[in-house]
Simulated assay, not measured.
Amino acid sequence: MEEQFDAAYWQQRYQSGNTGWDTGRITTPLKEYFDQLQEKDLRILIPGCGHAYEAEYLFRKGFKQVYVADVADAPLEHFARRVPGFPKEHLLRQDFFSLSGTYDLLVEQTFFCALDPTLRPAYARQCAALLKPGGKLVGLLFNTSFTHDGPPFGGSSEEYSAYFEPYFNFLHFEPAYNSIPPRQGRELFMLLQKKNH
């Protein structure tokens, strides 16, 4: 991984408040997806979780097997203060590519676009490795290109689908209709299911 996007880089971004991706709350597409989940004992992983509003929402709704991972300490410490009842052992200060274990659901929210684009094929492969057969990857991807140097890094649905197709069946992979206003028309909502092979 390029040195500039290592743990120290992200720690510095959080400490300086340079977190333009942080919406301060769960975004509508994921909230609406979570609201229709019935099984409270799903093992859920949120990689590159940042301030983890999604984990907070799920935890407060009674999901007890939620795990969050980030390479930087600052967002995990912030989350632990904000949600003191969240199990400390579910806070994983770890690089996504070194995680192990099996999960029913992986949640993608602005992590994929923060990675160096050369890591995208490895991201798709690792998501599949962390999911049990039939497990799902749900989340949002930027369906746009950016004029500035990343992160975030943009891309297109055609590019993204090539990474995921070897490992996943596509249940939903369309422009999000309920994005938050600043991201309207620029996000794909994906719901992918790990292939059984």
Rank of each mutant, 00 (worst) to 15 (best):
S156P: 02
V138P: 09
A124I: 12
A122D: 10
T118H: 14
L131H: 09
R120W: 15
F146I: 10
A122Q: 14
Y123T: 11
G134C: 12
Q126W: 01
Y123S: 08
L130I: 04
L137S: 10
G155H: 03
P151V: 13
P121S: 14
P151C: 12
T144D: 01
L140P: 00
C127R: 03
T147L: 04
L131T: 08
T118F: 06
P133E: 09
A129F: 05
P151G: 12
A129Q: 08
C127L: 08
L137T: 09
K136S: 13
Q126F: 01
L140G: 00
A124L: 11
P133W: 09
L130K: 04
T118V: 14
F153N: 06
Q126V: 06
R120Y: 07
G150P: 03
L131M: 07
G154R: 05
G139F: 03
L140H: 04
Y123M: 07
G134T: 12
F142H: 12
Y123A: 07
D149W: 02
V138G: 10
L140D: 00
A128L: 06
G134N: 12
Y123K: 09
K132P: 00
K132N: 04
L130F: 11
H148R: 15
S156K: 04
Y123V: 07
G154Y: 04
R120A: 05
R120S: 10
L137F: 15
V138F: 11
R120N: 03
A128I: 07
A124C: 13
S145Y: 10
D149C: 00
G139T: 05
T118K: 15
